Amino acid sequence: MKLRPFASWPALMGGASLVVASLWPLQAHALFDDDEARKAILDLRQKFDAYRQDTDAKLGRLMNESRDAGTASQRSMLELSNQNEQLRAEIARLRGQNEQLARDVAELQRQQKDVQAGVDARLRQVEPAKVSLDGAEFTATPEEKRDYDAAMELLRKSDFAGASSAYAGFLRRFPGSGYTPSALYWLGNAQYANRAYKEAIESHRRLVAQYPSHQRTPEAMLAMANSQIELKDGKGAQRTLETLVRTYPQSEAAAAGRERLAKIR
């Protein structure tokens, strides 16, 4: 095989030049790609750093907000606890006031009852009350009843002088009392028992004249005749007994008067 001789140097240099010329765009393009990549990396790094900083800032804000929210929550819980304690204290205070008011109301009610009882007692001392005595019904004040009952008590004890004084005083104090006819009758009897016969006749005569329809009137006429007999006034006693029998024929006193008449005629 026959070898071909080397080309000339110029030709060789020209060919090299062509090779270099053909390779330059590739090298330039490769250098350009490296710069762009470095720039892209730098941009990406900057963006990453910015994103990280932004993320860190947001995370910090969230942590601060969470911390603030926790503090606010704790503060709210503390305020609620304080309000709850205040509410309990207020309820306890109101309960105490309610209990005190209940005691005050009970005390006022008791005092009102006492006052009402006192008023009722005073009214009973002055208000007239219905009385039924010796077949008659009437109203009398407590004072009238008290004085009349006091005179009757003296008579029951056989204190005839005291009873006479008590009945006489009663008739002066209460001249229009419904007790008057009964008081006149018992006054005459007390005077008779005390041997004050004239006074007894006068008391019984007042009863007969002023209250002819009273239940005690026939008995008063019989008592008058007895006083007249004690005074040796037989004619006067006879007239009194005859009037008794004629006026009240159905009375027990008239029956006793008839027997007495038979003895003195």
Rank of each mutant, 00 (worst) to 15 (best):
K2P: 08
R4M: 10
P5G: 04
A7T: 14
A7M: 14
P10W: 07
G14M: 13
S17H: 04
L18S: 11
L18P: 03
V19T: 07
A21G: 10
L23A: 08
W24Y: 06
W24T: 15
A28R: 15
H29P: 03
F32H: 12
F32V: 13
E36V: 12
E36Y: 12
I41Q: 12
I41N: 14
D43E: 14
L44C: 07
R45T: 14
Q46M: 15
F48H: 05
D49E: 13
R52F: 11
Q53T: 11
D54V: 04
K58P: 05
M63P: 00
E65H: 05
E65I: 02
E65G: 04
R67T: 13
D68M: 05
T71L: 14
T71P: 00
A72V: 08
S73P: 02
S73W: 07
L78S: 06
L80H: 06
E85N: 10
R88M: 12
R88E: 15
A89M: 05
I91R: 13
R93C: 09
G96D: 03
L101W: 06
D104R: 11
D104C: 03
A106R: 15
E107R: 15
L108R: 11
L108S: 09
Q112V: 10
V115N: 15
R124N: 15
A129E: 11
V131R: 12
D134F: 10
A136K: 06
E137H: 04
T139A: 10
A140H: 06
T141H: 02
E144G: 11
K145V: 14
K145Y: 14
R146N: 11
D147M: 01
D149E: 13
A150C: 06
L155N: 07
R156C: 06
S158D: 08
S165A: 10
A166N: 03
Y167C: 01
A168S: 04
F170I: 02
P175Y: 00
G176Q: 12
G178V: 01
S182Y: 00
A183M: 00
L184M: 03
N189D: 08
A190N: 00
Y192S: 10
R195D: 13
Y197T: 09
K198W: 07
E199S: 13
A200W: 07
E202L: 11
S203Q: 02
L207Q: 00
V208I: 09
A209K: 11
A209C: 02
H214Q: 01
Q215R: 11
Q215Y: 03
Q215T: 08
T217A: 07
T217I: 02
E219M: 11
E219D: 14
A220C: 04
A223M: 13
A223P: 03
M224C: 06
K235C: 02
A237I: 01
Q238N: 09
R239M: 09
T240N: 03
L244D: 04
T247I: 05
T247S: 04
E252D: 15
E252M: 03
A254G: 02
A254P: 06
A255M: 03
A256V: 14
E259M: 15
